[in-house]
Each structure stands twice: as C-alpha cells, then as structure tokens.
Design a protein around this nucleic acid. Structure first.
Lengths: 259, 259
DNA sequence: CGGCCGCTTGACTAGTCTCAATCAGTGTGG
DNA sequence: CCACACTGATTGAGACTAGTCAAGCGGCCG
C-alpha cells in the first residue's frame, strides 16, 4: 500500500479507531479476538478518566473483598503476597492493557494484594460495568482468553522459579515482557522501559536483590542486554531467547483462529 | 441426630444422593455452590464409565489441541512442563474431583502436558457435554469458582517455591493436600494416601529428590509427619501448619456466601 | 547541598545440588 | 518359591549456587 493510500485511510478513521491505536486494552484484546466497532467504543469508554497513582501504592490488599476490577493503562503493577518475615513474592505483573480480576467478585476475599511498582494510570471498573461488558460476546471471549493466558503465564513463572538458574530467570522474564509490551505498543525491537527496581526483580524471580545484580551483570557480560536508568536494551534477542530457553507458546499470541 | 433417624434418612436418599457421597466431583462442587438435584444427576452421569489409566501416562501433551476435559475420579495426576535438559516442573496436582481445562478449547494448543502420577480413574468429557453442563447456572458458577481456586493455588505454589525453604515447601504442600483431599473424602484427620514418589515431590517443589529426602527427614525428626508406603501420617497438624506458615484462605473453602 | 534510595561489589556463610554407593520394596520369570 | 531386576529411598562427601552482611558509590529529590 502506498504512503498516499495510507494517508487516506487515516483520514476516514473514526474517533474510536484513532484512540484505539494508543489504548493498550484495545490492542491487547484485539490481539485475541476481532472486536466490532461498538465493543471498541465501549472499551474505550471505560478507559476514560483513569486515576494517576504513585509507585508503591496498594490498589487492593489481601483479605479485602474484591470490588470490581482494575485496568492498568500506564505503568507497572503487580500481584504479590507477603510472608510473616516480610519476604515478598510477586506473582504477576500487570502492564498496560492488563485487567485484574474480571471474576474477582465471585470470591469473598482477595487471597493476594495488588500494588503499583511505578507510577500508574489506573481505571477502576465497577462490577455492574463489568457485567455489561461481558454481555458483549466478543469482549467476553477476549477477556476469558486473557484470563487463560494469565494462568498459563503463572505456570511458566513457576517453571521459571522452580527449574531455571538465576540469570535464566531474568532472561526469561525479559523475553516475556518484551512480547507482552510489544503487543500493546510499549516496546520496540530493541527494548523497553522497565520502571521497576532490582528489588522488584528479586521478589519476582525468587532471589535476593544482590544476586539479581550479579545475574544482570552476567547477562550484560554475555552481551545479551543492557539495563540502565530503568530502560532495558536487548542487544541480542535470539541469544537472549536461547539463553532463557524461551518459547512464546504459553502467551497464545498467534492463535486467533482457535475455536 | 440418633442412629435411627440417620438410618431412616438414608432410606429416603435418592440414587444420586447415595452415589454423590462417594463422588469427588460432586463433593467438591457442592463445597462451592449448592446444586439442584438435576445438576447433581447430570454431574454423576458424566462420572460414569471412567477409564482406568496406569501411572505415568500422558493424558494430553504440550502442543496438542485441547479436546474436551479430563475429570479425575481416583488417583493423582499433574500438569507439568519439561525443559530441554529433561528437568520437569509440576505446576498442579489433579486429585479426585478435579477437572482439567474447562475452558481449554478456547486455546489452539496446550501449553503444558498432563500426566498421571499414580493409577487413575479418568472420565473424558467431550466439548459438547461441557457446553451442556455450563448451561446449568449453578454448575457453571461452581466450575468457574473452581477455576479461580486453581489459579489462586498456582499463585501460592509460586510463593512456595520462590520464598519458602525446602522443608517448608513440603510441609505447605502437605497442608494443602490435606484440606483438598478432606473436601472430597480422601483424607481423614490424621493423614491420607499420597501415591507419588519423592521424585514427583522434587519436581513439584523445585528441588532434587535427594534433597526432598533430607527435607522429609527433617519434618520427621521434628515430629510433624511420617511418610511410608505412600501413606502420609500427620503427627502434629497445628505444628505442621505453623512450620509451613500455612493459611488456607487461598483455597476459598469456606465462603459459599460470596456474591 | 544533603539525604535517601537504589545499585554495585567483596568476603563469608548457608542451602542445595551432584555424584556415588547402598539399601529396601515390588514384581517377574524360571 | 526363590533369584533377579528394577525402581525408589536413604545416606555421605564434596562442589557450587545463592544468601547474608557490610561497605562504598551514584543519581535524584527536596
């Protein structure tokens, strides 16, 4: 298609199409299921007026009753649990486009907490609104599939922590984030913003921050990555993937054609 | 209630009520949501004619398209993944009453394998049958809730492997299995059959079998458990729970009253 | 400019793995 | 019925990975 044709196409974009290009939720869900225009508009609507939250803020705490869901529009958040001795395990990252707890209200109490790792833009969606969204079959299918991918990601993380070495764990995490962030337009070929600390990486991969630092050095010395000023540069993507033994199947990115 | 009254009550039990007492799927789902008689009958029907499968049989392998779901009626199975070097990570146990992949057909390919750890009785449920079951609101709600608990369990396992010591991981696993098996009538106050090897425990908790053996010895020497001939005896349940820092909230056993 | 948080590094310790040998339980075929 | 084979459990010795403690550095914010 010529540049001119491209330009013309852009002129006749609807408002929701124009906004959608930058809306991570839409980009993510459309990666799973094609959405009718009305659904796109509905999803854009719930993304309006997000709240800006600073880093280190609990969005909901373990033990509290779930109340609707969170939608991350910008920044990094995480699911985590604490042990009595203060040890923290991060069990999932919520990146732009991710929605926490679509089915949450089915349970009486949260069994974990959700916290921002960086400054975030967060939209809170009330249970009624979720219910309305789920009446749209395409949206319901996309959200369901998104939940299945979240669960598959959790399994991969368990494999990561249980059966990979410390540097491999970090490499695998970076490969995963690279794909997830690319799917929502927050990463390019060479890297992405990673607005979290080495302490956070440690609590994600089941290590100490000291050891994370050493592991990062190893990845750097192997010429695979560079991590400075909260920006991850991937110097050798095939090498990084091979080192981490990364296989993207669990993210189910390329199978829209499934039943 | 007197023995006599008990006896009379038993006389007027319907067939499905009689069978249900021993059916682990029914026991599990009724722990989440009360089920109408017709639903109970439908669930009993799909539990008929299970297939007997010997230990170490793959029920489905990574990469294959999901085809319906499995229902474990007896024995232990697991979800697992292999690394290229042969290392295995077990990511979930399927015990009697557990159903794999209610939503599986939404995805194009399995991202993990499922294998029996002991001899099992397994019912295979076709996608059409699943669809019919999901038309029953109470069954759908119970299965959905069961899926949420599976995911919460996965998170707890990640915490386990990431932030607990080797003996603590085993202790926590035993506490979890004790509750899950009691919910389906496969455990009593003092212990349960654990028909799996120390290699399996190692691949569950991210250790080697040698170290599992040493960790089990530590639990034994602390007077917490005894594990011989595939039977786990819990000698000190409060002590075991305290040692593992076990909190049962994530299993969501006691909150039928939730929205 | 000073304080704080996060990063980096070193030295030492603790936990876990690897390799290897032995023992016990189970099932099989002669 | 017993010898053998195989798998799983147990233990020891030594190596290695990751954790702990401690110090110094550097960038960012007030």
């Amino acid at each position: 298609m010529s540049r001119l044709a491209c330009g013309r196409a852009r002129e006749i974009m609807t408002d929701s199409k124009r906004e959608a290009a930058g809306n991570p939720l839409l980009r993510k869900l459309e990666g799973f299921v094609p959405l009718p225009e009305a659904d796109r508009a509905a999803l854009l609507k719930i993304s309006e007026n997000p709240q800006v939250v600073s880093a280190g803020t609990d969005l909901i705490r373990e033990g509290e009753p779930p109340d609707g869901m969170f939608l991350i529009l910008d920044g990094f958040a995480c699911r985590y649990k604490l042990r009595e001795n203060g040890a923290r395990q991060i069990m999932a990252y919520l990146v732009p486009g991710d929605a926490g707890d679509v089915d949450g209200p089915l349970l009486r109490a949260m069994d974990h907490s959700i916290c921002t790792l960086s400054a975030c833009k967060v939209a809170r969606i009330a249970p009624d609104t979720i219910w309305n969204l789920l009446q749209r079959p395409a949206v319901a299918a996309a959200l369901r599939k998104s939940t299945l991918v979240d669960e598959a990601t959790l399994r991969e993380w368990l494999l990561n922590v249980g059966r990979r070495s410390a540097p491999e764990r970090l490499a695998h995490l970076f490969c995963e984030l690279h794909l997830r962030l690319r799917a929502v337009g927050r990463a390019d070929e060479n890297g992405f913003e990673l607005p979290i600390t080495q302490y956070d990486l440690a609590d994600t991969t089941g290590q100490t921050s000291v050891h994370v630092n050493r592991s990062l050095r190893e990845l750097r010395e192997r010429g695979l990555i560079k991590l400075r000023q909260r920006h991850l540069t991937i110097l050798d993507l095939p090498g990084l993937r091979q080192f981490a033994e990364f296989k993207s199947g669990y993210l189910h990115l390329g199978d829209q054609a499934a039943a």
